[in-house]
Nucleic acid binder design. Structure first.
Lengths: 321, 321
DNA sequence: TTGTAAGCGTTATCAA
DNA sequence: TTGATAACGCTTACAA
């Protein structure tokens, strides 16, 4: 690997001149510039970004961390981040495992968008205290250097359930995901709307899923065995709703005539299957997260959580309000 | 940000001693070690990986590059890479846009897995000549320092089409994706099997899609307008097959009774919709790609392309052979 | 217009 | 058991 010194020696100039040429400075004669450029080309010189980063102190790079590979919409989020970052001439590195200690470091990246729920708050707080800017998605942390960008789960689920009530549904079942802020909010909205409408809901009609299709399938079978048949099953996400639909189809339960089903996320499969659900604008959330992160990096100090609004998509697995 | 020197000063030792402690060396007294460790903790010291990388010359990191955000199975590939890399104590960075020049650099990453079709061969060849190890997916490049890990499209599509022939289908239509090695191979297999079975296929029964669901939908409408109704539509991927299915459903065409449909990829939606397709083991391909890359990095010299085998999944959008 | 030299944060060598 | 020093590849004052 040719280094800047090799180029300098070969061109008969000093390393600083090579550096200047390569960084678009104009304080050299045209012929020196040409010469340097041609030597770079001939030697196939590529600047060592590590050396440069060390010297310059920042490398205009942000990082995104996630760890759930079952969610296609993560790709949309990535696309959103990627698009915004490009406009600002920053680079993006995405990281999936425990390399955080290495990459969440001022020396390596200027900031981070965190979507990995396995990364504990305490870790993020530690980084934030060191002035490392972070945007967290799907969780709320209201401290300096951390900005939350979260889906307004509560409002979205409220809209959905209120619509179902207006359709005339009276007997509800809810399939929850694993313990998380998302799930708590979605369930709370569900419960609140039922309460406001004086529709009773018993604990035993809450079924414990884990956001996977399989768990939805299993819970649906339990529902079919129970003596209290709901007329609508509200699922905390689309994957579980798809599992429910599969179980219902296998057991000859007509959707929505016998039992209606709805989800949350508006995944591609849900769309294709005509599932009533809540559309979360994922590209936009990625884009916004990146935008906020760069604002923090450039010195912004607005750390108020940002809520993303959503829309209910009424499709064929429920009546329409 | 506290640096190694700050720690050294605070602990009353030299930077080298701090470095030694932090790198697990044992050439110091236990009490010095303890002291250093406690100071590190108190100051919240984190090693600057850039400084370290510059000194050490390598940072045990590989990179993965992609750019198509419409394919959920990319997440499976990433998971495969991520899993393998973890076992070898390497880090993975994923990169989506034009940051390649920066990251595909010996100083930054030790090697790269390339799945971005927009990255030209010429660029990769240039890197390979500089001894930068690369694993390319979905394209074949048979030169030193580049290993190809590709799906055996030809064999897979042959199996599928041969099965269709055995089902008794006689009038075929093919919807191709955009111009690419994948598409060429899939179509060649399709055509070869028909030829071998003396089943005629005219150019006008090849429809030009672009791998999107929308294009499948549009082509399906064209097919319905044509005077030659096929009894099976073979699509170069699942997305297009889903588009076809949508169009057929809207027009009252029964699948598979009136016209059968099949795809390629075994996406989640295809699975859910019962589409006959070819299952590509994506997790495994990522895993293997990572494995081969690390082999190259450690000095391996087996650059022969590796073909990944696949299985046909017979489902309800076609008869079964 | 060009070159010299210091320094970014670390580790390795070697001497104490 | 410790520390001084050089070096990794680059940029940037500042000097020439």
């Amino acid at each position: 690997m040719a280094g800047i010194k090799d180029v300098a020696r070969e061109a008969g100039v000093s390393p600083s001149t090579v550096s200047n040429v390569l960084n678009g400075k104009t304080n050299m004669s045209p012929k020196t510039r040409e010469l340097v450029l041609s030597v770079c080309d001939r030697l196939g010189y590529e600047p060592n970004m590590i050396g440069k980063s060390l010297k310059v102190g920042s490398n205009k790079t942000i990082m995104f961390s996630f760890s759930d590979f079952e969610r296609k919409f993560y790709l949309s989020i990535i696309r959103g981040i990627s698009e915004y970052v490009k406009t600002k001439d920053y680079d993006l590195i995405i990281c999936t495992n425990k390399s955080l200690e290495k990459f969440m470091n001022k020396a390596f990246t200027n900031g981070c968008i965190m979507l990995d729920r396995r990364c504990p708050d305490s870790f993020l707080l530690k980084k934030a205290e060191k002035n490392y800017p972070i945007v967290v998605m799907d969780r709320i942390m209201d401290v300096p250097n951390i900005k939350s960008v979260v889906v307004n789960n509560y409002a979205a689920e409220r809209d959905l359930v209120q619509g179902l009530v207006e359709c005339g549904y009276k007997k509800f079942a809810f399939i929850g995901g694993f313990e998380s802020e998302d799930n708590r909010e979605r369930f709370k909205a569900f419960k609140d709307v039922l309460d406001e409408n004086h529709i009773p809901f018993k604990k035993e009609h809450y079924y414990d899923g884990d956001y996977t299709k399989k768990s939805g399938y299993q819970m649906a079978r339990l529902i079919l065995l129970s003596d209290h048949r709901p007329d609508v099953v509200v699922c905390a996400n689309d994957e579980m709703a798809l599992g429910v639909i599969k179980a219902f189809q296998e057991n000859g339960v007509k959707i929505p005539e016998d039992i209606a089903v709805c989800g949350f996320d508006d995944t591609e499969t849900a769309r294709m299957m005509g599932v009533t659900t809540v559309d979360v604008p994922n590209f936009e959330r990625g884009y916004l997260a990146a935008q906020y992160l760069l604002e923090l990096i450039e010195g912004g100090t607005n750390f108020d959580p940002f809520l993303i609004t959503t829309n209910v998509k009424w499709r064929s697995t429920t009546k329409h309000p």
